[in-house]
């Protein structure tokens, strides 16, 4: 089953390093592809094994269970041979160079490299050396392409399931992203994809955690798609169709950006009362892992409006679609 396929669109990328280069048509290809994969995910069966025998290596310089496992499951469902490499954060500074590691993994058979790194831009460095495809699984504060795509997929299925995923299917919809946008690759990538789909995006948090976004908002994403930045939580939530709470890292206090976790929770935590000011039935998203009781109240995190576990399941389907598209581009003549 595919919805109003974006027929004329071809996927042009050997790597997925950022979402800023994806056309609406390419986003539509991923979303349609993911929709086709959901039956596979639900059924637990291997699909047509389009990645049979392809070496997929996950290279994680930052701890992450859910993203790594999600990629691993996605790759295995497509028949790939998966190798997981966890590089301690210490090896980044120890002089063991990323490029050495990439060359070594390629020599060991990696054809697709899924990389997570604490430094913004690191996947670009890897892509410059790697003969296969590099998938950015999160780099520093910069980008988390598959997270943004799975968030978009989730919104598509809930808010506009019959619309063309290559079109502005979120036009007229408001999405509020709450919390630490400054350090968030999830917020940055979602700004590109959500505005591409036509959503009105609101970034909301304490002044110290949305620093710099005001200037970006004025010119707009890609210089043409404005969004709204505010410290006013009530304004951000009013009539929102979806609310995404971002994870708050403890380090933000020691860096002097916030007085305390408690103050953050009191002023910006997504509680049931606050959620009730959004549009009735507004969706609640979170990229995980959640700090329940800080950026999101437990009864909201696990409440009826939460689609957090759906996001996780959708993540596998979206990553399968991405791996398949990249693999086809990789082996194309």
């Amino acid at each position: 089953m595919t919805v109003a396929a974006a027929t004329a669109t071809a996927w042009r990328h050997r790597h997925l390093l950022d979402v800023d280069v994806l056309s609406p048509g390419e986003i539509g290809l991923v979303l349609n592809g993911a929709l086709g994969m959901t039956e596979v995910v639900a059924g637990g069966s291997a699909r047509t094994a389009t990645l049979r025998g392809v070496g997929v290596t996950t290279l994680f310089y930052e701890a992450s269970t859910r993203t790594r496992v999600s990629f691993e499951v996605a790759a295995r469902r497509l028949g790939a041979e998966v190798v997981n490499v966890t590089a301690g954060a210490s090896s980044v500074t120890k002089g063991e160079s990323l490029l050495d590691t990439v060359r070594t993994l390629e020599a060991l058979g990696a054809r697709m490299l899924v990389i997570r790194h604490s430094g913004s831009g690191a996947p670009y460095l890897a892509a410059g050396q790697f003969g296969g495809s590099v998938v950015n699984a999160g780099d520093g504060r910069h980008a988390h392409p598959t997270q943004a795509l799975l968030d978009l997929y989730t919104l598509w299925r809930h808010l506009a399931p019959d619309a063309d995923p290559a079109g502005p299917f979120l036009a007229g919809r408001k999405v509020a992203i709450l919390g630490d946008a400054l350090h968030s690759r999830v917020a940055r990538s979602n700004l590109w994809t959500l505005t591409s789909a036509g959503a009105a995006v609101w970034i909301c948090g304490p002044a110290t955690l949305i620093d710099g976004f005001g200037a970006w908002a004025t010119g707009g994403i890609g210089g043409s798609r404005p969004f709204t930045v505010t410290t006013d939580l009530a304004a951000a939530l009013a009539d929102a169709d979806a609310v995404m709470a971002l994870r708050l890292q403890r380090e933000r206090m020691t860096a002097g950006l916030l007085p305390s976790l408690a103050e953050y929770a009191a002023r910006y935590g997504l509680t049931r009362d606050r959620l009730s000011t959004a549009r009735p039935g507004a969706l609640v998203l979170h990229p995980g892992p959640m700090n329940e009781g800080v950026e999101i109240a437990p009864d909201v995190a696990n409440g009826p409006q939460s689609v957090v576990t759906e996001q996780v399941a959708n993540g596998v389907a979206v990553r399968m679609a991405v791996l398949e598209l990249l693999n086809a581009a990789r082996i194309a003549p």
Binding site: S120, G121, H142, A143, G212, F213, A215
Partner: peptide
Amino acid sequence: GEAADGLISTVLGLRG
């Protein structure tokens, strides 16, 4: 700092 604080550092997620 990795970049000048401003639009580019915000978009690229670099310490300004």
